[in-house]
Write a protein that binds this DNA or RNA. Structure first.
Lengths: 203, 203
DNA sequence: CTTTTATCTGAACATGCGTTCAGATAAGTT
DNA sequence: AACTTATCTGAACGCATGTTCAGATAAAAG
């Protein structure tokens, strides 16, 4: 029952709100990103939602699960969005697709990205393992592209797994400085990074 | 007086220890890296040192300053170590020097690196600005190398500042996976990353 | 040996934490 | 209209937090 509500099932009965669940997750996301999981109290989250702290426990069994659901949702969305790209078969085109997709997706969700990289250590071991598994799947997608490119002779990459991690680290770094209002537009940023990625792996 | 002690002046008088100051910083560093600044209590740090919580205040005016001094010390060491490299004048050789230096230095200090990237948001604005300034100086070193390479026609880089940040993000990512005991040695890792960096920026 | 002093203890302070729960509230159902 | 039930309040729970400080301790200085 609780999990149904948490998953976003329409609440057809109740008293005041009807959208408290999403608001709780939005408030938690924003506060965790700004101040860090450990530094944010349930009372602060409740305050942002406009509710007393006790009411939060209608939407999450505890604080830890609230964090976990945010991270899991982000990683699940990321994987689903990537799979929805149906990337080209050609490795070079696929790599370009991945590069642009990663920058675009991550720039649209700076808060999720931030906590996904910062708050992993605040997950208990079980939850951590689940998130890590999703992350490895995403890395594996890029690694597969690289391996296919090597087989076809398009890429010169001795260690596809490590190069995949290096590329992802580089692309994710965009989020530390990119601002919508800045000098460069997102397509321009994509272009700069795609040039680097392409040249770095090309045979 | 207190700042002298904190800076490491020999304590020629006192009671029990004589090395409590360094031990406090080591314990704080290790615990902050493992659990995060906000999640670590002064009592935990004191416990690791083998002292009561109150005694910590002989070595830091407060918890915030303890974090700040760790970050400042790390960034200062990093800049000093880089300046001690006297990098070659040739941009390509200098870039190789920077790449290998960055990987080596960071792999030797995983805890400092971790908190330097994770705990910036826990600094109050004044302290944050000071650390950011040091970080910009370090980025500027790489940016300078890139600019010189562009002028000499060795590099093809349209946005040296952004490419510098991208390279640093990529190189720092080594710390997320590299283990001394792993399959690859540090020189092998340096080689893999240097290949990527060189190819990515070469004209 | 006595004095000085840096260092540490142990208790206390006010405040905040995550979480629980009985009871109030208001919307949906009949 | 009365009934049901999801939702929220407000108070309470035990416990932890950063920081302070009077007093104990032991090493160095004379």
């Amino acid at each position: 029952m609780r999990s149904d509500k948490f998953a976003g099932m329409a609440r057809t009965q109740g008293s005041h709100a009807g959208i408290t669940g999403p608001k709780v997750r939005e408030a938690a996301l924003s506060l965790f990103a700004r101040h860090g999981y450990a530094a944010v109290s349930m009372r602060q989250i409740a305050g942002e939602v406009g509710v007393q702290a006790g009411a939060l426990y209608n939407y999450t069994p505890d604080k830890q699960t609230l964090l976990f659901e945010l991270l899991k949702g982000h990683m699940t969305d990321l994987l689903a969005a990537w799979r929805g790209q149906d990337a080209p078969g050609d490795p070079v085109a696929a790599l370009e697709c991945f590069t642009r997709f990663h920058i675009r997706f991550h720039s649209e969700r700076p808060e999720e990205v931030f906590i996904s990289y910062m708050e992993l250590r605040n997950l208990d071991p079980d939850n951590f393992e689940k998130i890590e598994d999703l992350r490895r799947q995403y890395e594996g997608a890029l690694e597969g592209i690289l391996r296919r490119g090597v087989v076809q002779g398009a890429f010169d990459v001795a260690e596809p797994k490590i190069v995949a991690m290096a590329i992802i680290a580089m692309l994710t770094g965009v989020n530390t400085w990119f601002r919508e209002s800045g000098r460069l537009s997102l397509p321009e940023v994509e272009e700069i990074y795609w040039r680097m990625v392409r040249k770095a792996v090309m045979a």
